[in-house]
Simulated scan of single mutants.
Amino acid sequence: MAAAGVLSGGAVTAAAASPQPVPATWADGGNRQTAANKAMVVHFYDQLFNHGNLAVIDRYVRPDYIQHNPNSPDGLDALCHFVTGLRAAHPDLHVTIERAIADGNLVMLHSNSVTDPGTKGQAIVDIFRIQDGKIAEHWDVIEQVPDTTASGNDMLSTLSTPRLRWPDPRVSTSASKRVASALFHGVTAGRDVTAFDRYASDPYYQHNPQSPNGIAAAKAFFASTFAANPGFSVSVKRVIAEGDYVAFHSHYKFAADDPGFAILDLYRVRDGKVVEHWDVIQPVPEKSANDNTMF
């Protein structure tokens, strides 16, 4: 669940790419098609944004490509135009993919996009839906990386052990999903902050920039949020899980007429407890370049 940073805005741009090849472990676990989807998406991302290889658009993206980034229209021409403009404006663009998670026909990338050297850039989550071997649909959530955080943790690193950036194939995906879902739904839908006591474990590493580490801080934040916002609601749009990582892509609202926030909450589950949390938060804009909403 997003913690105190729910009220902070994030810059709205499209995502960039990974300069490194896919680690072999990223393809472990799951079925062969899911692993192939993940490898294809990471390759596409790298070639398109880091190398400006526009040929991968025709090769890997369906002609009826659906776009949920509010700054971009649907279709291949719009994607080509965006990439060309982005690379022209930021020739030193560099993106590091910290995590790649695949679940059925969905692939999620959790990245740090640095458009200009010396800046901290943006934390970005991209979600791709694969259909018949090609990218059919895209969602993203984008937030500016701040200079400092309440916990002292950055927005993207892994602090819990073992310090693997990619999903651990030795961990049961279904078991991780059960634990993370019990915590997430228990708190957001059930408004039961004691779910942290049952399903999380201290030091509960926190990567939301405005929240300290620990279960006590998370409980205090949600208790105060519920008290101050009786109309608070969370609508989960999709869940993506692999190994010890579980992600919830949701629409958070503080009142019925609130446009709200697109938020991606990411949990790491170890030994049956949630031990680490990342999120990326973006306000839902009033207007969009497409008619698809951010969800």
Rank of each mutant, 00 (worst) to 15 (best):
1 M>P: 14
3 A>I: 11
4 A>C: 11
5 G>D: 11
6 V>R: 14
6 V>S: 13
12 V>F: 08
16 A>Q: 10
25 T>A: 15
27 A>K: 14
28 D>A: 13
29 G>W: 00
37 N>F: 07
46 D>R: 15
48 L>I: 04
48 L>H: 03
58 D>H: 07
65 Y>H: 07
70 P>V: 08
71 N>V: 15
79 L>Y: 05
79 L>K: 04
81 H>P: 03
83 V>K: 05
83 V>M: 06
84 T>H: 11
86 L>K: 13
87 R>I: 08
89 A>Q: 13
92 D>F: 14
95 V>L: 10
101 I>H: 01
103 D>Y: 06
107 V>M: 05
108 M>Y: 10
108 M>C: 13
108 M>K: 12
108 M>R: 12
110 H>P: 02
111 S>N: 07
119 T>D: 07
119 T>C: 05
127 I>R: 10
130 I>E: 04
133 G>D: 12
134 K>D: 13
139 W>K: 06
146 P>V: 03
147 D>K: 14
147 D>L: 15
148 T>W: 12
150 A>C: 08
150 A>V: 09
151 S>H: 02
152 G>T: 06
155 M>S: 09
157 S>W: 00
162 P>R: 02
164 L>D: 13
165 R>H: 08
169 P>M: 01
171 V>T: 04
173 T>G: 09
174 S>F: 07
176 S>E: 02
177 K>C: 10
179 V>F: 03
181 S>P: 10
184 F>I: 04
185 H>S: 12
185 H>R: 15
189 A>I: 12
191 R>C: 02
192 D>H: 13
200 A>E: 06
200 A>N: 06
201 S>F: 00
201 S>K: 10
201 S>T: 03
203 P>Y: 00
205 Y>W: 05
206 Q>H: 01
207 H>T: 03
208 N>M: 01
213 N>F: 02
213 N>M: 05
218 A>N: 06
220 A>S: 12
220 A>E: 13
223 A>N: 11
224 S>T: 12
226 F>V: 01
231 G>W: 03
232 F>I: 05
233 S>D: 14
237 K>H: 15
239 V>H: 08
242 E>L: 08
245 Y>K: 12
249 H>N: 15
264 L>R: 13
264 L>A: 15
269 V>I: 07
280 V>R: 10
281 I>F: 03
281 I>G: 05
282 Q>M: 14
283 P>E: 11
284 V>G: 00
285 P>T: 00
290 N>F: 04
291 D>V: 14
294 M>Q: 08
295 F>L: 09
